[in-house]
Amino acid sequence: MSTVVVAPDSFKGSASATEVASALADGWRSVRPGDVVRLAPMADGGEGTLDAFEVAVPGAVRHPVRVTGPSGDEVDASWLLLPDGTALVELAETSGLGLLRRPAPHDAHTIGFGQAIAAALDAGATALLLAIGGSASTDGGAGALTALGARLLDADG
């Protein structure tokens, strides 16, 4: 009997890291049923980061939220509350490339990211962990800041 650690990243556009880890583990167990298989899906701060933390941190709780996606469409997303009160918010889930029907380099924004951050803070999160990979936007975070109440002004006010 062996212990096997299955720690993939996502297969971008095809399967999340959690789905890949589960499929690999199922395949391994079908050939070596006596082995202990430990799932440890990975993420680089982009898509799948919430999933990886949810698997890795016992007691983490996912909170659904509806936000404005990078092209202005409403999207279903979520943030994760960790047991110590820290909220993990993933940019890819709220304002990511996977949410676009087609590239929008001049228009995609991060408003949904700010909305998810605000939802986590409103729910009582005591700290934030922001995973900022996988963005579809080129607004430099201006959309997120405005969703959090900032006013952006030019030299003329």
Rank of each mutant, 00 (worst) to 15 (best):
G141Q: 07
T18W: 12
L99K: 08
L130T: 02
E93M: 04
R29T: 13
A123D: 15
V55I: 10
L81N: 11
A144T: 07
A52C: 09
V4E: 01
A127T: 02
L130K: 01
L88H: 05
V31Q: 14
S22I: 05
V36F: 00
P8Y: 10
L50V: 14
G96H: 11
S30E: 13
M1C: 02
V4S: 04
L148C: 02
G85K: 10
D73M: 02
G72E: 11
G59K: 09
A92D: 09
V75C: 07
S71F: 00
G59I: 02
P64Y: 02
S16V: 07
L145W: 05
G69Q: 08
P33N: 10
L128Q: 09
G72A: 07
T110I: 03
L82M: 14
I117H: 03
L82F: 08
D139I: 00
V31T: 13
V6W: 11
A52H: 09
T138A: 13
A144D: 06
E74V: 14
L80I: 09
A120P: 12
E90V: 10
A120R: 10
P8E: 10
G157P: 08
T49I: 02
L88P: 10
A136N: 09
S16C: 12
V5P: 04
S22D: 14
L82Q: 06
G133H: 03
S14M: 02
V57C: 11
L82G: 06
A60Q: 10
V20Q: 08
S2A: 13
L97C: 01
S135D: 04
E19F: 05
D139G: 01
L130S: 03
G48W: 12
P8T: 08
W28N: 00
A155Q: 14
T94C: 15
A147V: 05
P105F: 10
D107M: 05
T146A: 03
D84K: 12
I117K: 01
A123R: 13
A60D: 07
R38L: 15
S14P: 00
V37P: 07
D156V: 11
L97K: 01
L91M: 15
D156W: 09
L153F: 13
S22A: 15
S137L: 05
V75E: 14
K12R: 15
G149K: 12
L129Q: 05
L88M: 02
D26T: 15
D156H: 13
E19V: 11
V65H: 03
T3H: 06
A123Y: 04
A77P: 03
